[in-house]
Design a binder for these strands. Structure first.
Length: 498
RNA sequence: GCCGCCAUAGCUCAGUUGGUUAGAGCACCAGAUUGUGGAUCUGGGGGUCCCCCGUUCGAGCCGGGGUGGCGGUACCA
């Protein structure tokens, strides 16, 4: 049988786990700084709680991983952290403080085609305010998202939080006569087309709004078949609406009419913008972008999207499109599905896995391994004295130094290579000579590697035994500790100097 | 799902008009060295040439079908 992994899934090694843990710590600290508290919900929910049944069928949507319980009820792996939160809030409504501010982190699952930066299991870090309809809640969420990205080491200008409003989009649909139930299908097509502005550009979007578009492989996508002036209206809205602070606000009110739901959405957006500007967040960080659409189902008002502005390339130098590294919005109807009374809510999720992949690809220091060290390795030279070696390792551990006895069956050279590969800072050597004298050899692998640069021949290398010294057995832990702290402060000095 | 490209060692790839025992670099293992990482040198292990069927005296190479991978597109709630 071949050992293999389904597409869109990945194993994570020590370096990646360490880098991810660092990212999570940063995000958590920012979210807590804004007064959000931790909550965990399970990875599995009833499918109906996620709202993911196929229309007019009693089977779950194909995009979600689903299976049936013993009682034949459908269960699904969560596909985001928002729907489970809504379930939790509805279930515990009476005992939660309102507004309820919480954050959660975990893997979510989507049964979709995988690609670079697109996984079938990935991690999200999510924060939500439940029970506030105020645009202040939305503004705060956006500022927090910007703070989190910057604290992760993404330079200002290298990311942007784009905001738009579902109400605004609805208003535009109405303005071009696409309101009403009859036009639901075409509205969807139009919104999806607008959403592709980033990827396909204005020309591609125009084709999708009109006759349709043929892609690079020759495949044809049917368009919305709108009239030319309707297309022009949408395009001027989606493109012309992008502006930076201080410019005249887009002439939407004329288009929408004051009483339109679209005008209401615009008012809310502008209020959010005023709030973030007042707090010192400029258009380089948070800006209105009417081409943002995002999820089509549960968002009811403002929607947010975090995009990286820098270009990324894969190992072969091909440009890679990562899409958004976070997103969110207001979902005022989601909790009401479980309760008689409706509850407004807004939130934002950081796509940790995708962000990690993007940062890794551009070699960002946040996710580089940098200075990761393995355990001290006690070499096992003499098979009859394993207990002695085990005791040496135990002495090191007692002093709080991560240590291990080499447990393989190979010779000394292989053991040295093993230590090298484990990133060990130090190996401990005790052969019969040392044991007779009650000593151990401490070999400093970091200093040794440095010294090896100047050594040309193996004879010289072996004869010199660089960075190696003998100490009495009783002083082992103490001397190793000294050596480790010397390296730690050295590395620290290098870092602060750089 | 639809469209396109691709499939030879762990990885990256050569492989002549269809011809005998399928190669290289890197990686891995060992030796040179009774007990010392790196570099160098020498040697070694490792292949269902993705699978099946067909054409042929003969297929890694040609044809058909399948599977898998990559990319585009759709979907992404």
């Amino acid at each position: 049988m071949e050992a293999r992994l389904p597409r869109g899934l990945a194993d994570r090694d020590a370096a990646e786990l360490a880098a991810t843990a660092k990212m999570l710590d940063v995000i958590r600290s920012v979210f807590e700084l804004y007064g959000f508290e931790a909550l965990e919900t399970p990875a599995i929910e009833y499918t109906d709680a996620l709202g993911k049944f196929l229309p007019d069928q009693d089977r779950p949507n194909e995009g979600v991983f689903s299976f049936q319980d013993e009682d034949e009820q459908w269960l699904s792996l969560r596909y985001d952290l928002t729907a489970p939160l809504a379930r939790f809030v509805a279930q515990n409504f009476d005992r939660l403080p309102k507004p309820y501010r919480s954050y959660r982190c975990g893997h979510v699952y989507r049964n979709e085609k995988a690609g670079p930066g697109r996984f079938r299991q990935f991690m999200q870090f999510d924060a939500d305010t439940v029970g506030s309809a105020s645009p202040a809640a939305d503004a705060e969420i956006c500022m927090m998202a910007a703070d989190a990205l910057e604290r992760l080491g993404i330079q200002r200008g290298d990311y942007v939080i784009k905001i738009n409003s579902r109400k605004l989009l609805d208003g535009v649909m109405k303005a071009i006569g696409l309101d009403g139930d009859d036009n639901a299908g075409r509205r969807l097509t139009v919104l999806r087309a607008i959403d592709k502005m980033d990827r396909l550009g204005p020309e591609g979007v125009k084709l999708l709004l009109g006759p349709g578009r043929k892609d690079e492989s020759g495949d044809f996508t049917k368009g919305a078949e709108l009239e030319a002036d309707a297309i022009a209206t949408i395009m001027s809205f989606s493109l012309g609406g992008q502006y930076t602070g201080g410019e005249p606000r887009f002439g939407l009110f004329d288009l929408l009419g004051r009483s339109n739901v679209g005008a209401e959405g615009a008012e809310e957006l502008l209020e959010i913008e005023d709030l973030v500007r007042f707090c010192g967040y400029g258009a380089d960080r948070i800006r209105i972008d009417p081409s943002v659409v995002r999820g089509l189902e549960y968002y009811t008002g403002p929607v947010f999207e975090a995009d990286l502005a820098f270009a990324t390339r894969d190992e072969k130098g091909n440009p890679v499109r990562f899409g958004s590294v976070g997103g969110g919005g207001r979902y005022d109807g989601l909790i009401g599905r479980f309760r008689a009374e409706n509850t407004p809510a807004t939130g934002f999720s950081i796509g940790v896995s995708r962000l990690y992949a993007a940062l890794k690809l551009v070699g960002s220091p946040i996710v580089e391994a940098g200075g990761r060290t393995g355990p001290v390795v006690v070499l096992a030279l003499d098979r009859d004295h394993i207990a002695d070696y085990q005791r040496l390792a135990a002495a090191l551990r007692a002093a709080g130094i991560p240590s291990e006895l080499y447990l393989g069956a190979s010779g000394m050279k292989a053991q040295m290579k093993y230590a090298d590969r484990r990133n060990s800072p130090v190996v401990v050597i005790q052969g019969s000579n040392e044991r007779a004298k009650g000593e151990v050899q401490i070999k400093d692998l970091i200093e040794g590697a440095r010294a090896s640069a100047a050594i040309a021949t193996n004879e010289e290398w072996k004869a010199l035994r660089p960075a190696q010294f003998a100490v009495p057995e009783g002083e082992l832990a103490e001397k190793v500790q000294e050596l480790l702290s010397r390296h730690a402060s050295g590395a620290g000095a290098e870092r602060s100097g750089a």
